[in-house]
Each structure stands twice: as structure tokens, then as C-alpha cells.
Simulated assay, not measured.
Amino acid sequence: MSKINTQYTTYGVLFAISGGHFINDSIQSVVPAMFPILEKSLDLSYSQLGWIAFMLNMTSSIMQPVFGAAADVKPRPYFLPFAMVLSTAGVIGYALAPNFLLVLLAALFIGLGSAVFHPEGSRVAFMAAGSKRGLAQSIYQMGGNGGQSLAPVFTALLFVPFGQIGALLFTAVTLAGIFLLYNVSIWYKKQMINTGTSHNKSGKDSSLSIPNAMKLAILLLILFVFARSWYSAAITNFYQFYLIEGYGFSIQKAQFYLFAFLGAGVAGTFFGGPLADRFGRKNVLLFSMIGAVPFTLMLPHLPEFAVLPVLIITGFIILSSFSVAVVYAQELLPGKVGMASGLIVGLAFGMGALGAVLFGMMADSFGIRSVMLLAGALPLLGVIAVFLPSDAKLRSQQL
């Protein structure tokens, strides 16, 4: 176990960093929430919308492991408020961008803010967890998924009535985030001083002793999260258009259904940690994908009355492994908390950016229904979890 871990769970800090995660991911969710507006106001194609999602997620996914590895060598507490400064710049640009290229630039800044925030945020959650690492990671990730779930609400309540300029309202949120994360960074720095971890040499050296079997397990876990993120990318970025085209929904009604999926995912994220503590991390990982398969396959074929309950069930099941995958990665890479977070929350999950681009191109060429049919089969790849090390083997590695 990394020596920065504390004996007792510091709930005040956990909920504070979860609040920062909520704000960070709320700002990220502004990007897809604006898609129905940008499609009309800037006359963008599905492919261009996919490229915007690509810029946001790919920036975050590529840079998170870099910042995570740097944080393992030398933690930087004040990166937390700095990340929110980058997001502030991005959201202002997103509100004022008059064309596609400037929208891409604004998405780049929001993605960089997320890349800087997540590794340090995961370290804070780890430090404040004490012995309750599963619960702590659930609290932390629940904040992030809660922020992401608000994208449909933003669309329906802000962007439909106010248009693109409505994104400026979020500067007040990011300013509050800067203040909150500045205070968290003060606690973070004090913990580093108290535990002597201003330069985490143990984290640096531990990378040399990772067994080949564990490296393979990390690769399998990345592929697992990759498949889950592609499904999430299809739902988050394009399912609203499927509802509008296939069922004749208004933008507002489509956003309500999308919010139901994401809100159920928040609940799944929270309960996933305790469920993993009871039934095992590997078992929850496997169930979160294979258990969702019947629902993801039937979703494109349902009558309207059945769509909402199936969306809720799917969201709960498929995102129940979100926090579990992060904790599992941290146990595969003991002493490399930042890198584990960067690989799973950043690289693997962020690879949904590639899915967004390909799905956008597919929608332009073959129609939005083809995207939903392909996405429905992606959770079948969750069978990869069968080949992951058991929980007992992970525990033996910690000893």
C-alpha cells in the first residue's frame, strides 16, 4: 500500500474533491450538450460534431496519463485550481466561438483542464480514503458522473432558450470550482508535508517491478474500459438524434431520456463500489458489461413506451463498474495512483473520442440507426474481464 494513504477516512475532503469532480465534468458535459444547438446555428454535420467530441476527449485521454505519471513522481496540489482556470477559458471560448475551428480550440482547453484535474483529484481521493478505498472512489467518481449526467438538463433548460451564449453562465460555476479546489489543494499540501511525500520516490521506483502478468492485466482492463467508453460515446453524443429522428421527439424530450440514462449511471457508479466490496471487483466488472448486453441489443428496436425503463436499467448496469475499474487499476499498479487514474479515467475512457468520430461518420453515411445497432453489440466485448486476475491474486500482490 502506498504510504500516502491515511488510517482514517476524511469524508469532508472526499466530498469536496467529489464536488470539484462534479464541476469539472459538468463543464465537460457542456460540449455535447451544445451539439443540438451547434448543429443548427453553425450548420455542422454529424462528423463535425464527432470531431468536437474527439478534440475534447482525446486531449484529456492523451494528457491524463502524462500528468498522472508526473504526479506520481512529484505531486502538484495547485494543479487542481489551475485545471479549473483552463476550463474557464475553454467554456468562455465555447460560448463565443463563431465557427467550427474556434469551437475545436475551446474544446481543447476544456479537455486540457480535465487532463490536469483528474490525476491529482484521484490522488486526493486515495489519500482521504483511509481503509475504505472502494467507497471513497465511488464518492469521487459519483461527482464526475453526476456532472456528466447534467448535459441533457443544460440543453433543455439553458441552451435551447439562450443558445450558444448560454455557456457563459458556467463561468460562475468554474470560479466557484477554483475556490473549492484551492482549499482542497491546501489540505493536499499539508498531507504531503505530514507524510513526507512531496517527492514520491516509491511511486517512481515501483514501475520497475510490475510483473508481466500485471502489465497484461492492465492492457486487458484498458480494452474493457475502451469498449464501455465507445458505448457511452454513442449514447451521450448521438442517441438524442436517434430519439428525435426515430421517435419524433423534441430536443427537450430527448434530453430528458438521455438524463435518465446518465442519472441511472450515477447511481450505478455509487453502488458499484460497495457491490464490488461484497461480491468482488472482477465479478462486478464482468456483470457491468455482460449483464447489460440484453438491454443494449434491444434498445434500438423498442416501442416508445419501453425505451425509458430499458435506458435506466442499461445506464445503472453499464456504469456500475466505473469506480471499480479505477480501484482495480490502482491495485494492479500499487504506488502509481496517478498513472492508474490516467490510464483508466483518461486514456481508456477517453478513447471514446475515437468512437465519437467514427460514429459521426457512420451516421452521415448510413444513418443514425446504424450507429445504435453497432453500439448495442459493444458490451459483448466485456467478456475480456474473464481473463483478469482474481481479487485474491490482487490482494496477494499487495502483501
Rank of each mutant, 00 (worst) to 15 (best):
F316A: 12
G177H: 04
L380A: 15
I17S: 01
V307W: 07
S45W: 08
R228M: 09
Y188R: 11
A83R: 03
F170S: 00
S47G: 13
V31A: 04
P211S: 12
A115E: 08
P119M: 10
T269V: 12
G144R: 02
S45G: 07
V153P: 02
K201H: 02
G111D: 04
S209N: 15
K74C: 10
L135T: 06
F126H: 14
M34A: 14
S41R: 06
K189S: 13
V357D: 08
T59E: 04
V266A: 13
L311N: 03
T88S: 14
P211D: 11
F387E: 05
F349N: 07
F22P: 11
F79E: 01
V173E: 00
S198W: 06
V310C: 13
L56C: 03
A107L: 06
N145R: 14
K132P: 11
F117Q: 09
D72F: 08
F79W: 02
A33E: 03
V327L: 03
I244H: 07
Q240F: 01
S323T: 04
F100A: 13
A136C: 05
M351L: 12
G20A: 13
F82R: 09
F349D: 03
P98H: 05
L42S: 05
S370L: 14
F179I: 15
N183S: 03
G367S: 15
R133L: 15
Y140F: 15
I17F: 10
S320P: 08
L285P: 02
Q252M: 12
I37H: 07
S250Q: 00
A151V: 11
M55I: 06
P303N: 12
L104V: 08
P161R: 15
I52E: 04
G196M: 13
L286F: 01
